[in-house]
Design a protein around this nucleic acid. Sequence first.
DNA 1: CCTCATATGGGGTCTTCGCCCGATATCGAC
DNA 2: GTCGATATCGGGCGAAGACCCCATATGAGG
Lengths: 210, 210
Amino acid sequence: MRILVADDHGIVRSGIKLLLERQSGLDVVAEACDGVEAVEQALSTRPDLCILDVGMPRMTGLQAAREIRSHLKDVHVLMLSMHDDEHYLFEALKAGASGYVLKRDADLDLVGAVTAVGRGEAFLTNAAEREIIRRWMEDGDGGPAVSLTPREEEVVKLIAEAYTNAQIAQILHLAEKTVESHRANVLRKLGMRDRVELVRYAIRRGLVEA
Amino acid sequence: MRILVADDHGIVRSGIKLLLERQSGLDVVAEACDGVEAVEQALSTRPDLCILDVGMPRMTGLQAAREIRSHLKDVHVLMLSMHDDEHYLFEALKAGASGYVLKRDADLDLVGAVTAVGRGEAFLTNAAEREIIRRWMEDGDGGPAVSLTPREEEVVKLIAEAYTNAQIAQILHLAEKTVESHRANVLRKLGMRDRVELVRYAIRRGLVEA
DNA sequence: CCTCATATGGGGTCTTCGCCCGATATCGAC
DNA sequence: GTCGATATCGGGCGAAGACCCCATATGAGG
């Protein structure tokens, strides 16, 4: 199988390359250190499989996947992610990826994922994610990212700005209980446990700055 | 040379390992996927060199470097960073690292860095950084803002990772009361009021990621 | 010696969180 | 039009966690 590897970290490219080339039948025929290069390389070398990092400069792996798949229908894409975040999982599948592997687990999963995707199967990092996928497919609404209501976002933002529930209630002219309700709903939606996790979520989402 | 590799991404560990072991005389004798494990492994296996990622869960590479260097004076530390950020460079050197390599360049630089550090030389990713270093050494003004003790930093990091005081106490083998003390001291030093503010501080300082 | 980092307590209050419950209002689907 | 889902709003209660002010003790280092 002829493979393209794209990641902005040289060490990761080398690691993947060495890992794959220990298997016979797997050949890394092109490397790229960002999405733009990945697309160029893919069009010129016509690999069977593209392994793309989600987070690359200039053009992300997601954008690159869309671009590549739109030109080369028979190319498989395996997405690599640093994040445990399933957000990118959905994005990756929408972008046409057949597989999704976390870098954390990549040393164990990668060869399996590559051969699975090579056989035309889908590969996801673990069973839990398959489950998420299944539910997502059933819904079909295409809402991968849990969406918060405007009110909920307001509350999250204020929480991340270190206001107490009481202060938030004052600011938004609500009962403290209502604020607690919104917070509880958000925690449930996002599968989080406390305000600390919410802060990091809010920063990630750009609701507040660090 | 006996080497310890610590990084939370399996693929990076594998890459480094494969890369180094192509050279004769370089042996990866231990791996760790976070700072706590790195310290434990370092103390038990006594490697000649520790290659530490700056951004790891539970305990960062910086904290681990301090910890390791305080116990094992003759161990060299080579710091790996994802960020182009020179902020961590200074922190790394203060923590006792002899070398600093960006993951982006790691496939090219790593072996050179390892042998350089093994010879007792310092290795920095590029000349520009040497220059920065020189100026930094000249300035020597030391602490610009409030500085936290190593212990306090550990606690802050864990708080920002959404651990409860009780969990932090377990992880660091302390009484919950002690954790509370450290947290309270940090809050006083920084003029903050609760953990939510600490999270943003920790993210700003690069102790954790959002 | 005195300071500072570290570690540990006792006492207490306040906030947060989980889980139960209810009420409107809107909106899209049947 | 009716039904169900969802958003918004409100409440009580209890447990757990976070936070505050106090004090103590050891050990390293200037």
